[in-house]
């Protein structure tokens, strides 16, 4: 029966549901975890990379993309970074759209686009695919971490239906339920970036399937204010920096040989 109502995005089922959107959400709940925590002096994002093949040629990705963007964490504008969960190809298209929208705003108003407005731009596009034309909606959820002078640091989440909401800490992708309850337990108001980094890594290490965290499975980024210029500064960590960070928080891979030697 359901078959009759899920072949197009535009058609409601008799129970008043849009199946394609629910399927898109389902696709996202299998994607790599993306986690965001809002602190009083910054925002922290982390993302889990799902498949890593030994034969995949990563030489082109070593330097990172625009502003050091990786596979799952992207720089959208100088004041916004985002983590994506879902179909990578759809995500790339949305990221490209967001960057263009941000540049258009900069051109028109000579200011960085406010974070909520950028979220709205993408949600308008996503909503469009639940109503017109296309065969399916975007299979992507995003977390937006950003700064603007109106509301300072912000964290937003948007889903394939075009809904968005602001959060203090949230998680999308696989195991997001576990992560959310962990965050609910551990999040404190007035948390600072330093603590937020620790919290993100801790929750990530508990939700991810693999026993040890490493740069091949994890992407990490922070958005803070540059102390000198007071302008927002996005830092998307390079693999070596991620490994160093994990080591600092005692979550990194243990080199068994050295452990044997020291004991």
């Amino acid at each position: 029966m359901a078959r009759r109502y899920d072949s197009r995005t535009t058609i409601f089922s008799p129970e008043g549901r849009l199946y394609q959107i629910e399927y898109a959400m389902e696709a996202i709940s299998h994607a790599g975890t993306v986690l965001g925590v809002l602190a009083k002096d910054g925002v922290v994002l982390a993302a889990e990379k799902k498949v890593t093949g030994k034969l995949l040629d990563m030489s082109g990705a070593r330097e990172g993309g625009y502003g050091g963007s990786g596979e799952k964490i992207f720089l959208l504008n100088s004041n916004v970074i985002s983590g994506v969960a879902g179909i990578a190809a759809d995500a790339n298209s949305l990221v490209n759209y967001a960057r263009t929208a941000a540049q258009r705003h900069l051109f028109l108003y000579n200011e960085d686009i406010p974070v909520e407005m950028l979220t709205q731009r993408l949600c308008d596009l996503k909503q469009g695919y639940t109503q017109f034309g296309g065969l399916r909606p975007f299979g992507v959820s995003l977390l937006y971490a950003g700064y603007d002078p109106h509301y300072a640091f912000q964290l937003y989440h948007s889903d394939p239906s075009g809904n968005y909401s602001g959060w203090k800490a949230t998680c999308i992708g696989a195991n997001n339920g576990t992560a959310q309850s962990l965050l609910k337990q551990e999040y404190k108001d007035e948390i600072d970036v330093e603590e937020a980094v620790g919290l993100v890594l801790r929750v990530m290490s508990k939700t991810m399937d693999s026993t040890t965290l490493g740069s091949e499975k994890l992407e990490f980024a922070t958005l803070t204010l540059d102390p000198a210029t007071k302008q927002p500064k996005a830092k998307i960590y390079k693999p070596s920096e991620i490994d160093a960070l994990l080591k600092k928080h005692d979550l990194g891979k243990k080199d068994e040989d050295t452990e044997m030697k020291t004991t």
Partner: peptide, 16 residues
């Protein structure tokens, strides 16, 4: 100045 900033930023995004 604003036009060139826009075009150079778009170039940087596309070319990485």
């Amino acid at each position: 100045r604003e036009t060139f900033r826009y075009r150079v930023n778009m170039y940087t995004i596309k070319e990485e």
